[in-house]
Design a binder for these strands. Sequence first.
DNA 1: TAAATAGTGTCTTTTAGACACTATCGC
DNA 2: GCGATAGTGTCTAAAAGACACTATTTA
Lengths: 243, 243
Amino acid sequence: MTESEFLAGYDPAAYERPALAVDLVLLGIRAGRLAALLLRRSRQPQAGLWALPGGFVGIAETLDAAAERVLREKAGIGRARLEQLYTFGAVDRDPRMRIVSVAYLGLLPEAAFAEALAGGAGLAAATLVVPWAGEAGGPVSAGTEDGAPLPLAFDHADILALAVKRLRGKLDYTDVGFALLPEHFTLRQLQDVHAAIRGAPLNKSAFRRRMRDRGWIAPTGAREAGTAFRPAELFRFDRSGQF
Amino acid sequence: MTESEFLAGYDPAAYERPALAVDLVLLGIRAGRLAALLLRRSRQPQAGLWALPGGFVGIAETLDAAAERVLREKAGIGRARLEQLYTFGAVDRDPRMRIVSVAYLGLLPEAAFAEALAGGAGLAAATLVVPWAGEAGGPVSAGTEDGAPLPLAFDHADILALAVKRLRGKLDYTDVGFALLPEHFTLRQLQDVHAAIRGAPLNKSAFRRRMRDRGWIAPTGAREAGTAFRPAELFRFDRSGQF
DNA sequence: TAAATAGTGTCTTTTAGACACTATCGC
DNA sequence: GCGATAGTGTCTAAAAGACACTATTTA
């Protein structure tokens, strides 16, 4: 153990520490497409650009707790499925000072997503263009509903791209698809969510067969209402069938 | 934006910051089993327990750079495939002070692993018992070669368990298996590595077929030497066949 | 030629894609 | 009954597991 390590270990106050923050990638489905919740920066630096909701981590606060607090305070959302994504630590990622940021992925059902948009937090929805470029995923770009690009602040484009990549990677073997749906849903809705995340269409019969075989869905007995045609059966996520 | 957020954003020096560290899970294959490199703690707290090599992140140092520096300085290893794993931020994970740690997964070929053990860094090898409990993976425990358990310091058992889980998850669709082998290897060696990571045996014919079909392996034309029986063909990882 | 492992062939099972078909609802 | 979508049946293709078989090398 060198002298500097000894000091760093036992008197770390003697060394300058990076600031530690969390940033939230809040994803939902909007008009059949994957979308993220962004805030427009009103101040320098990067004023006018779009940023992920974020905030600093308190000295006596867990990372998860900080993410939940930002979800409440900055996004005005009470609850969401949050999961740690990756920690971004480039030295110059924020021009003000050294900030290391732990990125979180949050998944919102369609209603919660719309509610967050309507709330007073000033959030806007960025539609994500997610081309199907193999399992690895291609580039992800954020834009308005009619296609105008939304320029992202700092390294937030990288964070967003990684979030989509992670979501895609987990789609086939975890329950992430259900986190974007209401408690009761039709198989068509579920398929649409999967298609939006993949960026490519799915075969209907094979999809339904797979969901059934995995034991992930349970019939509720109820049916859709208000359709102009044959109403579909409503299912719910069956947590017991996970493995 | 509340008053406290404003202050935290623009005068973060006014708030106490967590210390930021990296911890390295260095994995390799030893006697056909998955093993990790650990350091025995000589001081309080948790003296006598086994810990992952780690160190603090410098104020002008990338997370990846900090991990590489710890790899050199604490483990005496020049190069390894390092990949960020997860960030651990429980408030009381270190009794001395608040330390948030970014865990890294490092994969070492068998020779590099043995070399690191023989080096003067004081590293010991902990054999990992990795039972096959479905894709999710069961509990992971560290022990000596003859089965005596090695108690781990802090939350390092959690970090180790997550590292193995990640390694398992990536085994089938990335090149992690090759990172644990020398440049030239036999298909038997490759299969043994996969079996060690899975914690379950693999079908020979199916395994070879899959590796071939994916274009991951390229014949070198050379053969094993020094065997008491038919020598196997040597292959190398074919990076071009990844996707 | 015996021992031991390398490497292959083939049958079966599972999973997914393609695609047409039937069922059922509101109007 | 018509329009539109829900939901199913079945053929085919691709991938994986089981397992026996042949091949090749050293001693």
